[in-house]
Amino acid sequence: MDLENAYDKIYRYAYFRLKNQELAEDITQETFLRFISSYGNLQEYDMRYLYSIAKNLCIDEYRRVKPDPLPEEDEARAAQNIGSTEETAIVRVALSKLPVEDQELLLLRHVNGESVGTIGKALGLSRFAVYRRLKDAEEALRKGLEVSGS
C-alpha cells in the first residue's frame, strides 16, 4: 500500500471526526509528521499507529473548538457535490443516529477496509470487542435503514 492511500484513509477519518476540510487536512499532515518524529521515517509506517495518533489529535482538536459546535455538514463537501444522491442521504441520516463509536467502526472496516486486528490496535480494543461491536453497529445501521423505509 502506498503512502498516498494511507494519506487518503487518515484524511477521511479525520474528516469524519471534524467535518471540516481544512482541519482534517491539517490533522492528517500532523499525524504523519508525528509518526515520523517518533519512528524516524515512513519506510515502515503502520496504519495502526497512524490511526491512533490521528484519533488523539482529533479529540484534542474537538476539545479545543468545542464552544463553537462543529457543523453537521461542511460546505466544501456540498460544493463538490459529494454523496448527494437520495440513497446516500438516507444512509447518512441513518449513520448519524448511531453512536459516534459505531460510525467510526463502520468507516474503518467498510470504507477504509481495515482488518479487525488493525482496528483493534488503533482503537485500543481487543479483536473480539471490535468484532462484536462491529456486528452490533452493522445491525443498528440496517435497522435504521429499514425504519427510514428503503
Binding site: Y15, F16, Q21, T88, L95, V111
Partner: peptide
Amino acid sequence: LAEAYAAP
C-alpha cells in the same frame, strides 16, 4: 457507505 463518508 463510502459515499456517505466521502470527504472533499
